[in-house]
Amino acid sequence: MKSLKKELPLHIMLIPGVIVTLIYAYGPMAGLVMAFQQFEPLSGFFKSEFVGWDNFNYVFHLPDFKQVLWNTLVIAITKMVLSLLVPLILALLLNEITRKWFAGFIQSAIFLPFFLSWTVLGGVIIELFSLSGPINGLIASLGMEPIMFMLDNSWFRGIIIGSDVWKGMGYNMIIMLAAITGINSTLYEAAEVDGAGKWKQVLHITLPGISPIIILLAVLGLGGILNAGFEQILMMYNPTVYEGADIIDTFVYRLGMFSQQFGPAAAVGLFKSVISLFMVSITYYAAYKFNDYRIF
């Protein structure tokens, strides 16, 4: 009981968070029951027919589901890896800039695309890579044949992944930079004294120092393994690239073409949630076992 008394302030601190979470995060979860129902808005949650696993079966057995699942995994995993690597490199490079105003400028510029939504960016990128756009203009001036980027499966995937990494790199970069500033500067000074060059310092001080944050970002990123970028792909895709770029979310979105499919949509959402939770749990415990590090 003594420990409880000592810990009481901690429990109290958690109360507001718990209340808000219970009401606004767990409350709506009751709606997940839609995944098991033939949901009709007019009947609501209580009167819609219960159909068990039917919704899941329906979606999983649609002919293109395998293709769509594969696309989702490929795109999501590539994005995940790059969204860690690229910001990391940028953060390390930016850290070497000494003039504060210059560093600030670069940081702001890199973060800017984060503000644009895909409804706008989608059109801009399509134009950028169109036959009459600047990229093909460059290619033509180099004497090569123009390429229909957005109509080719492999190019399109590359553009999707690249543009998403570009748009979001500012976000992760800022987090990593904040982590870098948190590293004790005396460590660097000590290393200098010991004769370590900049490169060695990065390797032995900076990277280990921010490894908790990197692991955190990586693990949480893994939770998004089935989220390949719905809004982005919806804005930019077209029937010619369905084969390589149709993902679970866009596929399910079009299923609702003739009539809202609340049940199947909820089922797919639930499926994705379960997989995310699974992935994060495994990596959480792996990080704990091997590094004695709890991500949260």
């Binding site: 979470t21 606004y24 409350g27 709506p28 839609m34 639930l270 949630s273 949260f296």
Partner: peptide, 30 residues
Amino acid sequence: DQFKFRTVYVWIFAITMFFGGGLIPTYIIV
């Protein structure tokens, strides 16, 4: 060790990062 039940709390919060009821249920609650 400093805070028993910590893990319980953490997972209570963490799970909400993966599961959501969706638009309609949230609207109803609000």
